[in-house]
Design a protein around this nucleic acid. Structure first.
Length: 660
RNA sequence: GCGGGCGUAGCUCAGUUGGAUAGAGCACUUGCCUACGAAGCAAGGGGUCGGGAGUUCGAAUCUCUCCGCCCGCACCA
């Protein structure tokens, strides 16, 4: 709603300038928000127009004010020093539209979007870093869907890499377990925890004697080869751990549509198809000398070609060894980036090959999750061949991501390269205090740092399920003390909703490029800028309607046509107006989150709504209000805030408990 | 060395394309519950926006430079 008014305003202003000053080149009209509501709802700085129009900012503002004419939804304008045109929204008009729940149609771009997130190595339990990835990715999916886009969610599974091989080594060489014994263990709950510890032990075993690394290469080779006992064990382990990851993420309401696996990228020879094209187009070159002798290499992303015009002709210029990225090793095997190039050609429908598909997992809500296979089922949904992709991958991999994008571009797929977004975010580390709490010995140097990086290899980190368990039990303690009258299973359900609200909000309130220094104290907090704070605001709103014996949605719509009689309250109380105004911004914020790939803005918006509501709640008693007309209006305010909070929280993947 | 990110209150962080008096939360101090649920509200202290220079009517935001921290830069994935 807010966004439509803003657009209407800028369009009118642009037309005004065009008619008054034809032919004069003027800068874009920018619309801001005044620092205080009393000043208005939009502020348009006039300074940029002063020079081209050869006039003082205040004077221009006066002229516009006089000549712009009435705009639907705008009540009036004011000129403010040192040179702003402040615009006030027609409060009753906006409130009526909001109360009615009017949805103004938006042009939704067509084309399917593919969001890839999580992509956890299936060799150990997921940790808090994976939680940040999955929550960011899932929230972005929800944002896109809220905006009307069609989205497929993929979770890439590297089931043939060194990490899975390491755990196989652990079971076979350290624990001397047979396939049957491993299968028995894998069927037990939290098998991923077992692997977590084993993986750390294997790393130590390698460190103890470098000879031991030979075991890894043998296992790795056997897994890549396929069709043998070792590969079968690897598959058994990675599939069992993968199921555990799906369960963990399902606790947070995170679901996937398709799980492409590296084993199929290998066995279905995706790389061969890509390799042919890369060679033919000259993206890859064969090195005959130097340290990369015998390798197929391409230009590393970020190492720009010499841009001097006189050398532009010289496209055959040798890549310096520094600028080379090895794609195919001298022994003929392809590395990670090569496989990723092939995989991304598949995503955009440019490879000419496809996976086989098998239905792998059915969520409690009946939603199906498919997995790649060599020979799949006949009837399967269609994945890949999308027009836009987002890869939620941490910032450390930005160079590899850029290299894949560059490969696509050099193959001539500019369209694909332009619609490839590396949704980059920073890691979750631990505060020194948290690390110490987990029993890790810190050096003096480490103690002085603000955070310490987790390490799966050392088994150093906070497991996702452990954190979720702790959050639930902590929330449960609160619920138990507040609502002893409620049944056990219901209290657990409420505690779970609160725990997930706290966790998802925690992971979303930081902007992506900020390293989260994790600490149990902050993460387990249910006060202040947290998920439960926002949930609580909705619970309060629900409580008011319950006591009033009214349906909140129906009441809001019912009063929409009758706001004029309450216009006085709306125009006089800036505090209440601010709340309505904030409510009108949800769609605007969602659009902003999508265009900047930054979900944190939505978290800030939710917090602002909840905060404004709490202030309003304390200042205006509603049920005891004696003026019926005024009471109706206050209830309508609660109804709209409640609706917008629920909607925004849902986009963040947070539900609201009935009581808390 | 090259590429990317960061430096804002005691701590953790917002600050969208330069705009009006730099904001939250936590922590600390002080008030407010026989209640539309205190997981809340109100008030208070706390800042040379890393240093310096420049561009501009205007800089936390842009440019340059210096200082400090982090992450990449494997024939690993």
């Amino acid at each position: 709603m807010y966004r439509h008014l803003e657009k209407r305003l800028t369009a009118r202003l642009r037309r005004y300038f065009e008619s008054q000053y034809p032919g004069v080149a003027l800068p874009e009209v920018v619309v801001e928000q005044p620092p205080k509501v009393e000043l208005g709802d939009f502020a348009i700085p006039m300074f940029p127009f002063a020079k081209p129009l050869r006039s003082a900012p205040m004077k221009i503002a006066e002229l516009i004010r006089g000549g712009i004419g009435p705009i639907e939804g705008i009540a009036g304008t004011q000129v403010a020093p040192p040179g702003y045109l402040n615009v006030k929204i027609d409060r009753a008009w906006l409130a009526a539209a909001l109360a009615a729940g009017a949805k103004l149609p938006d042009a939704v771009p067509h084309g399917k979007i593919l969001v890839e997130h999580s992509s956890i190595n299936p060799n150990k339990a997921a940790h808090i870093g994976h939680l940040r990835n999955a929550i960011l990715g899932d929230t972005f999916v929800r944002l896109l869907r809220e905006a009307g886009r069609e989205v497929d969610v993929q979770n890439y599974i590297d089931n043939t890499g060194a990490q899975v091989a390491d755990v196989v080594v652990g079971f076979v060489h350290l624990e001397k377990k047979s396939k049957a014994e491993i299968a028995e263990l894998a069927a037990k709950p939290r098998f991923d925890y077992y692997c977590w510890d084993l993986y750390a032990r294997v790393s130590q075993w390698y460190a103890g004697d470098n000879e031991n690394l030979q075991a890894r290469s043998a296992v790795l080779h056997a897994i890549e080869e396929g069709g043998n006992e070792t590969a079968a064990i690897g598959d058994l382990i990675s599939t069992a751990v993968l199921r555990r990851h799906l369960e963990t993420m399902d606790r947070l309401d995170i679901e996937y549509d398709f799980l492409p696996r590296e084993s199929e990228i290998l066995h279905l020879h995706f790389w061969d198809a890509a390799f042919t094209e890369l060679k033919e187009s000259g993206v890859l070159t064969f090195e005959t000398e130097g340290k990369n002798q015998g390798c197929w290499v391409m230009r590393r992303a970020g190492t720009a070609k010499s841009s001097t015009p006189e050398r532009a002709e010289d496209t055959e210029e040798k890549l310096s060894q520094e600028d080379q990225k090895v794609i195919v090793r001298s022994n003929g095997t392809v590395g990670y980036v090569g496989k990723d190039i092939a995989y991304h050609m598949w995503k955009f429908g440019l490879l000419g090959r496809d996976f086989g598909y098998l239905c792998f997992y059915r969520y409690p809500n009946e939603h199906e999750c498919w997995i790649s296979t060599t020979d799949g089922e006949k009837n399967h949904p269609h994945f890949g061949d999308v027009s836009e992709i987002y890869n939620v991958i941490d910032a450390r991999q930005s160079e590899a991501q850029s290299t894949v994008i560059e490969a696509l571009r050099e193959l001539g797929h500019d369209e694909a390269a332009d619609h490839y977004t590396h949704f980059s975010y920073e890691m979750v580390a631990l505060t020194p205090r948290c690390a110490a709490e987990l029993g890790y010995e810190l050096s003096q140097e480490e103690k002085a740092r603000s955070y310490i990086e987790v390490s799966g290899r050392k088994g150093f980190g906070v497991k996702a399920d452990d954190l979720i368990d702790r959050l639930i039990s902590s929330a449960q303690t609160e619920v138990d003390s507040r609502h002893p009258e409620i049944a056990d299973d219901e209290r657990l359900r409420i505690a779970t909703q609160i725990a997930i609200g706290a966790l998802r909000y925690f992971m979303l309130k930081y902007t992506k490029q900020s390293v989260i220094a994790f600490d149990f104290k902050d993460a387990l907090s249910f006060e202040g800028e947290t998920g439960p704070y926002a949930q609580y605001a909705v619970v309060r709103a629900n409580s008011i309607f319950r006591k009033a014996g009214l349906d909140p949605e129906a009441h809001g719509r019912g009063i929409a046509g009758d706001l004029a009689s309450n216009e006085k309250l709306l125009t006089e109380c800036d505090e209440i107006w601010e709340l309505w105004l904030a409510c009108s911004k949800t769609s605007y914020v969602i659009e902003q989150c999508i265009s900047t790939a930054e979900p944190a803005y939505l978290a800030k918006h939710v917090f602002q709504l909840a905060q404004l509501f709490n202030t309003f709640y304390h200042h205006y008693p509603i049920l005891s209000e004696s003026d019926e007309n005024r009471k109706k209006f206050l209830l309508a305010t609660v109804s709209v805030v409640r609706r917008e909070l629920i909607r925004a929280l849902a986009v963040m993947g947070i539900s609201v408990p009935p009581v808390m």
